[in-house]
Design a protein around this nucleic acid. Sequence first.
DNA 1: TTAGAATTCAAACAAGTGTTTGAAAACGAC
DNA 2: GTCGTTTTCAAACACTTGTTTGAATTCTAA
Lengths: 226, 226
Amino acid sequence: MGEATSRQALDTRLRILEAAEALFVEHGLEATSMRMITSAAGVNLAAVNYHFGTKDSLIQEVFRRRIAELNRLRLLALDEVQAAARDQGGEVRPSQVLTAFFRPVLEMASDAEHGGHNFMRLLGRTYTEPNAFVRQFLAEEYAETLDRFMAALYASLPGVPREEILWRFHFMMGATSYAIAGTDALQLFAGAFDDADPSRLMPRLMSFLLGGLRAPLPDFDRPDAG
Amino acid sequence: MGEATSRQALDTRLRILEAAEALFVEHGLEATSMRMITSAAGVNLAAVNYHFGTKDSLIQEVFRRRIAELNRLRLLALDEVQAAARDQGGEVRPSQVLTAFFRPVLEMASDAEHGGHNFMRLLGRTYTEPNAFVRQFLAEEYAETLDRFMAALYASLPGVPREEILWRFHFMMGATSYAIAGTDALQLFAGAFDDADPSRLMPRLMSFLLGGLRAPLPDFDRPDAG
DNA sequence: TTAGAATTCAAACAAGTGTTTGAAAACGAC
DNA sequence: GTCGTTTTCAAACACTTGTTTGAATTCTAA
């Protein structure tokens, strides 16, 4: 773009990003071709390469802008609960840390107006994405945010082995990923989710996550104990 | 194959299936080409089309044979706990239902000898697979097993709304999927899993899942309650 | 050993892939 | 209006994709 970028050029860039995002959700990264993207966006085929360089760079940009916003909201929420705890001389509770991390995801996922809705369905499955460069890039984007949240979670659960907290946080991300995907992706339970009200998803998921986090620690000598 | 199938032809079929499985795990379904499969299997390019028809049929067969075995083990385990409960005049406990469903997955995933190890990593992410025909096919393969397990879980949790049990089971599948993927796939928590002993994964996951299943039901009027 | 089916193989097929090119058009500042 | 830059466009590039073909080979059963 260089020095001057016309309004129309910005528009083209944006149309490509949003068309790509929607198609990535629907068909996956590999199965979405440049021609599918450009024709959906109503722009010339060469526009992607002109504005983004390569398809991989476009993929990267699709993820980058949404994750940046998502992590901004997460860290803002964490700042707030930590400040409130300091003011009251108390400690941040584990549930507050979880809420700060997972609420922004669900809110973006259930927000039909902005494009976040589509994207969150994409993000959930990208964690296990085979494409190496996507994985690498995603890990980098997440690193700082995860560090801060894990530190907060460790502090809120003194005495609990960090290894266990880490694993449980990992499990929680899986549950959340399916929570988002399940609202409109594959229906393994065909037509079974009668009550798929997105506003009820958050409390549903939060009570499950908290239950899992607070569960008795595993006894490695009695593996089947429940 | 028709009337006679030579030992060598069966061998070719099997080599293709196993090469395809390994490559699907590593690169994904779309990104794995016929030529990658046949050269990894050491067979001619046309062999896939000869033995399986199309690439999609091959994909289907890769999933079918593993899922069939997985669900066989699951239903066997469920039969056992249900028979034991009948003999003792008691009821099946929720933890027993969960163990019957999730233990076979983790056992196949941690079994390095048979090919199940690779496959489970693939299965976890296929639940959110964009490819429509794969989703459709997977839902069919799972239908009967899921019906029996959900019925058992409902029976073991009288008084709990089925809608909530369904959602929680859905969350559990997500947590399990990440549990398997996380042991060797993307390391969002870079190098953080010091203790990735597969034999400890089962108790770790089970205590988390049970904690989530037993969590207080969500209060839709106080969404943030924890 | 021989007839017939099953399987393998090299080569080619049409269609689709991401990317590049160079000319045409649209733009913003003077 | 003019100049120089930015952006669009149609066309082509080299390459990969899944699949098909027909001949050569291997197997099985009589």
